[in-house]
Design a protein around this nucleic acid. Structure first.
Lengths: 298, 298
DNA sequence: GGGTGTGATACATAGAATCTATCGATTTGA
DNA sequence: TCAAATCGATAGATTCTATGTATCACACCC
């Protein structure tokens, strides 16, 4: 077994610098006998004499010199480790990898990003977009720190926290009959053609579940890859769709040919929350991020 | 105090490799609780969480990853130290720095170098030429391992050993009256012009001392920087000189215009010996070198 | 809901590092 | 030349600390 001790290397380097056991010991904050004994032991484990001990003349052997040179590098690197660790001590600093669903990211981020930057200036946010399944995978593999997605979700080893409750709205072609109404009910969608995202988006499943009770027509051959695509489809009059409230502002709200109508209370909604590994080391940073999102989401 | 332990870094790297405390512990030949406790302590001294501990899912934090990367380098370097030490274990291997007087080196080395190479093949001899004073200085400073010089010599902290006894001979211009004699006595040099080396060469002092009793003329304005220069001066008939026996072979023996004659017994002589620090780590190598020189010098 | 896998905890112990006191060798200075 | 000073090594006691065994606590899985 390589039983080297960093401390012993420190002692050796001190002797190399001072050429004097007493002063070297003082430099290391230990007594001279301690340093003396430890260095002797070091020589024993290495099987080589490192120091020539002569009264009034302490010198390194050639082996000692070569080893001291390496020891200096090692000690330098070990100090670097300590420095590095210190720089990681601030829990609200460093990189935090956050993934959001594609149906959340583009609509939530513009609302919260400035507040996040202001509240957590030392936090370097890395933002990703993944659908639920790959998000969970990467989260559990440690490639992400937090996921922002629709709850509930099956994720062993993870803790979740609800951030906000997002009502669905209905997006209709502008000249659709229902566009005349201020609010809608789910039952009003009976018989409508429901446009949906492609497989993998949980929004698709949620919309399907909400509408399955009332009976809508499924547009079998069409699967949008994003809400933007979906918007264009609605504008062409191909059908209607369910839209999360946050998405219904911005581009959707101003889009030609599309009308967005809220549901009458109680509106169907999805629960957006944050998910993280129970074992995460970034809990406090995550909680801080959650607080900011909760304050600025709606 | 930077209380890092190499062993702890080993534990950390093992966990990074195995992503499993039990297997990592086995890899380090310790029990799992030991590794667990030590890593927790490491995290405490660094002030950072390095590992995310989840059942069936051990991961490194980003701090952990960065530190593991450095730890690998540190451990590699520490293994290098051990290897390096092992290579120094063979006492008859490695570098041995030997300095010889300028009046010894060029004449002794041709006689002993082949034998040294054969007897101590793993010893890498570094040869230097210094006059007595700088030789002692560098020897005591640890820049040399052995000095080969004329004894006795004042050198605190050093041990000496006589290697051989070198009689002086007389070098004369070929047509000098004394060149007709087979052997000479010191008294025969009375009145001769004695050519000498420059200050600093102990040979100069020895020659002066030997001849001071009989009264020779000193060539005040001439100081040879080497025996070779001296030889040319003798050949021109400028005077005579004392020559160590080993030097009187080779170039001197065959030189035109120069005659070399031995002293009649008891010939004045100088004692050539080896000098080393009492504290040297290379005693056995030095002794081996001394033995070879004693066998092959004369 | 018990079985299994896995890391943490409790506690005892052996070994290591450290301290104080002192020795022994060597150099220095009157 | 002898006494004082310097300096590293040694002895013995003590305090830490790394380690092992036994056990717990928790989560996951069938």
């Amino acid at each position: 077994m390589n039983d080297l001790k960093l401390k012993d290397l420190r002692y050796l380097v001190a002797v190399a610098d001072e050429r004097h056991f007493g002063r070297a010991a003082a430099l290391c904050f230990v007594s001279q006998p301690t340093l003396s004994a430890q260095l002797k032991k070091l020589e024993q484990t290495l099987g080589v004499q490192l120091i020539e001990r002569a009264p009034n003349n302490v010198t390194l052997t050639s082996a000692g010199q070569e080893i001291v040179a390496r020891a200096r590098r090692i000690l330098e690197a070990s100090d670097e480790v300590v420095t590095l660790a210190r720089s990681h001590r601030d829990p609200l600093a460093g990189r935090l990898r956050v993934a959001l669903l594609p149906t959340i990211g583009p609509y939530l981020l513009p609302r919260v990003a400035p507040a996040l930057r202001k509240a957590l200036p030392r936090l370097e946010l890395r933002l990703y977009e993944y659908q639920t399944a790959p998000l969970l995978e990467k989260l559990q593999a440690g490639q992400l720190d937090v996921g922002i997605l629709a709850l509930p979700v099956e994720a062993p080893g993870c803790d979740a926290r609800e951030l906000y409750n997002e009502p669905f709205t209905v997006a209709l072609p502008k000249h659709h009959a229902l566009a005349a109404r201020k609010t809608l009910r789910v039952a009003d969608l009976k018989g409508e053609t429901l446009l949906l995202l492609e497989d993998g988006h949980c929004l698709r499943d949620q919309a399907l579940e909400i509408c399955s009770r009332v009976g809508t027509k499924d547009s079998q051959d069409f699967r949008a890859t994003s809400l933007e695509t979906l918007r264009h489809m609605v504008a062409t009059g191909a059908g209607v769709t369910l839209l999360p409230q946050l998405a219904s502002r911005g581009a959707w709200g101003n889009a030609r040919g599309v009308a967005v109508r809220p549901f009458a209370s109680p509106a169907p909604a999805r629960h957006i929350g944050a998910l993280w590994r129970k074992s995460t080391a970034r809990r406090s940073a995550i909680e801080a991020v959650c607080r900011v999102i909760m304050e600025h989401a709606l």
